[in-house]
């Protein structure tokens, strides 16, 4: 090779130029051998980065098992994952890397967990799923709707549980409300007796007591709504901090407020009407305590 190279050099080229070129080439080759190969870049989830005290530019060692951490990688980004309620209580943290890098790391080239398929406009997802499922063994196709339905199963169970607890709470509060309204109206025995003595009609007394009950229920509902808003805010603040997430845990919708207010009003008016009806049927002297 040396003879060949020498023989190919024109005789008129000065020796110092040849020497310089050789030196440069040797230097380049040496640098090329010594320079580190480009490290794969990874994106690290914020909470993991915080836990491991990692920042962009840091180098980490990765491997498919604790005893085989052989691959070096650079932290190219720190990302905030989209909040997922299913993963809130889990302590697992994630990194993202390019598919070829991950495949090389795991030693399973050209192997993936899943494919995402975007259909042309107008193609039915269900028929596409059926076609794909018929095409080959070894994988199962799902439409986005099926995946959403399957992954939301846990939350449906939690929702059913919350609803059941809510029903028990509503029954307890309804009885409490009935009790209070009954006592509230009972407190007006003397007033009712006086009104009956001075000729006020039973219907008027009944109406006044029911109106009073409705006003009390309304005031209670307003206070309850404010309390619920405060409790919801406290719940969100606590659990967001507790789970280090941006998820919303308590949502108070206008529908919920309307339902609660209407239920309180209905129960309050019902309880007030029952108690008022008993009161106006009682003789005034009995109400006065002399009957």
């Amino acid at each position: 090779m040396r003879d060949g190279l020498c023989s190919s050099v024109p005789s008129e080229v000065p020796w110092w130029l040849i020497a310089s070129m050789s030196l440069l080439l040797t230097l380049c080759l040496t640098l090329a051998v010594q320079a580190p190969a480009r490290l794969p870049g990874i994106a690290v989830e914020r909470r993991l980065a915080a836990r491991l005290d990692l920042s962009v530019g840091d180098t980490v060692r990765l491997g498919p098992a604790p005893d085989s951490l052989r691959v070096l990688a650079t932290v190219a980004a720190v990302y905030e994952p989209r909040p997922d309620p299913a993963e809130v209580p889990l302590e697992s943290r994630r990194i993202r890397m390019h598919l070829p890098d991950l495949a090389a790391l795991l030693g399973v080239p050209d192997r993936v967990d899943r494919f995402g398929v975007a259909l042309r406009p107008g193609v039915s997802p269900d028929s596409a799923v059926a076609v794909l499922d018929r095409t080959a063994l070894g994988y199962q196709a799902y439409s986005s709707r099926e995946i959403a339905s399957g992954s939301s199963q846990t939350f449906r169970v939690v929702s059913r549980f919350h609803r059941a607890i809510a029903v028990i709470s509503i029954v307890a509060s309804a009885i409490f409300l009935l009790c209070i309204m009954l006592l509230k109206v009972e407190e007006r025995r003397m007033d009712a007796a006086v009104m009956r003595f001075i000729g006020v009609r039973r219907r008027t007394i009944f109406g006044a007591l029911v109106l009073e009950a409705a006003l009390v229920a309304m005031a209670g509902s307003a206070a309850g709504t404010l309390l619920a808003v405060a409790a919801g805010a406290a719940t969100n603040a606590y659990y967001r901090r507790f789970f280090d997430t941006t998820l919303t845990f308590s949502v108070i919708t206008p529908g919920i407020v309307t339902f609660a207010v209407l239920l309180s009003l209905a129960l309050g008016v019902l309880a007030g009407a029952v108690a008022a009806a008993r009161l106006v049927r009682t003789r005034p002297m009995v109400l006065w305590g002399r009957g």
């Binding site: 607890i165 028990i168 009790c179 009954l182």
Partner: peptide, 20 residues
């Protein structure tokens, strides 16, 4: 009677929730 019955019922539901 009515007041007592309602109170007992209220306490019973609250007690059931507590036990649960």
């Amino acid at each position: 009677r009515l007041r007592t019955a309602l109170s007992i019922l209220g306490i019973a539901v609250a007690a059931a929730l507590l036990l649960d």
